[in-house]
Amino acid sequence: MISVNKLFKTYGKKTVVSDVGAHFPAHKLTSLIGPNGAGKTSLLMMIARLLEPTHGDIFLNGNSIFNIRPADYAKKVATLRQAPGFNLRLTVSELVAFGRFPYSRGVLTTEDYRVIDEAIEFLSLGTLRDAYLDEISGGQRQMAFLAMTIAQQTDCLLLDEPLNNLDIKHAVQIMSALRRLCDEQGRTVILVVHDLNFAANYSDHIVAMKEGRVHYSGSVENVVKKNCLQDLYELNFRIARSEQGYLCNYFKPSGELK
């Protein structure tokens, strides 16, 4: 389990994360939601140790993460960020193999190959194994990066907007894969996501942020509520709940919703 205590991040006079305390339950899928500039990505990057907090502490299973060596942390927590500047010509399987870097440092064992094959199989990327990353679609690329993160075999996965720029089919594929990682493999997944409907339908737990603070945090039923979301986004919401799940409707401004 990951917990965050009195966390601050400031740049000069600007505070992007302010007095944040939150719990991310183990073996569950937690979505970080909130408007742009809420500090979601900053919080995630601090948990990933890619950003130094100004104050506060972060705990992984009760130990401060800053006491863990970076090389060991890479075996406990894997991070997937968007990679717009990624320009290496690697094949899908070569990329996934780099997920084993924390363990093998380059020299792959048969165990490593087994994990790589498993990760590729898990996301049904078998047919793309030998395709170069710059020759496949954005959605397939994102799946390949996710496979690399899975191959890192960490208890916890952090993902920053993994659905960005994806079509709905790939978005559903990614979210169901994350769901299966929690349910079948007992991993802890934390992701920043903008699409409320994906957050509502695929998460166990939601942490909602606004202006650097946590406004709501809890199970999906407790956060995906009309008054919470309206407060968060300053939009009118209509939330329908059926056997197919949640549907948050915010597309028409006030009054036009019938």
Partner: peptide, 21 residues
């Protein structure tokens, strides 16, 4: 160090999350 240099080419944050200094 060839593998490490490839990881460098993936960018600083990816290198850090793979545990490479």
């Amino acid at each position: 160090y060839a593998h490490r240099f490839t990881v460098l080419g993936m960018g600083e944050s990816m290198a850090a999350s793979l545990g490479l200094s």
